[in-house]
C-alpha cells in the first residue's frame, strides 16, 4: 500500500473559529484508524514577561496554504498516516481564543503523536504567519524563538 496516495489532507486558513468536536468527528470516522491525535494552540495571557490582551495574526495568502500542504505531505511520507487536518486562524484574536488546530490519524498512536508534533514544529518555523500582540506595553510584534527553530531541527535527523 502507498500511504502517500491514501493521505487525506485538509488545510484551512481563515478568521473564523473552529470546533474541535466537529474536527474530531471528521477525523475519527474511519475504523482503520486506531489513533487520533489533536493539538490546539491558544492565545495565552503572558508572553516574554508582558501581559497580552489580544493579538492580530497576519499571513501571506497563497504561500501559507501551500506550505501547510507541503508539510502535511512530508508528514505523510515519514509516518503511515491516513488523515491530516490543519486549521490556522488569522485576524484579531482575544485572550483564550483558539489559534491553530492540528489533527492526525493513523493505525497506531506513535505515528500519530510524532506526526502531530512534527506538524506544529514545522508550522511554527516554516508557515508565513506573524503575530502582533496588544497588551500592557502597547502593540508588539512577536519575536521568533530560537527554541522553536531548535524543535524543528530535531526532525531533520
Amino acid at each position: 500500500m502507498d500511504n502517500q496516495n491514501m493521505l487525506q489532507v485538509s488545510v484551512r486558513v481563515h478568521p473564523q473559529d473552529f470546533s474541535v468536536a466537529d474536527e474530531y468527528a471528521l477525523l475519527a470516522c474511519d475504523n482503520q484508524d486506531g489513533a487520533v491525535v489533536n493539538f490546539v494552540g491558544k492565545v495565552r495571557d503572558f508572553n516574554d514577561g508582558s501581559a497580552v490582551t489580544d493579538l492580530t495574526l497576519e499571513h501571506y495568502p497563497g504561500m501559507t496554504e501551500s506550505v501547510l500542504l507541503q508539510i502535511s505531505q512530508q508528514a505523510g511520507e515519514r509516518w503511515p498516516l491516513n488523515k491530516v487536518t490543519i486549521i490556522h486562524r488569522v485576524g484579531s484574536l482575544a485572550l483564550g481564543e483558539q489559534i491553530v488546530f492540528i489533527g492526525v490519524t493513523s493505525a497506531h498512536r506513535k505515528a500519530a503523536f510524532a506526526a502531530c508534533e512534527f506538524l506544529i514544529d514545522f508550522l511554527k518555523t516554516k508557515a508565513p504567519f506573524w503575530k502582533r500582540e496588544a497588551g500592557d506595553t502597547g502593540l508588539k510584534w512577536v519575536e521568533a524563538r530560537d527554541s522553536d527553530q531548535q524543535a524543528a531541527n530535531i526532525w531533520k535527523k
Binding site: 489559534i99 508550522l123 508557515a127 521568533a144
Partner: peptide, 10 residues
C-alpha cells in the same frame, strides 16, 4: 518576491 521577518505562527 516577498520580504518578511522570521515567522511566528502557531
Amino acid at each position: 518576491v516577498a520580504f518578511f521577518p522570521p515567522v511566528t505562527g502557531g
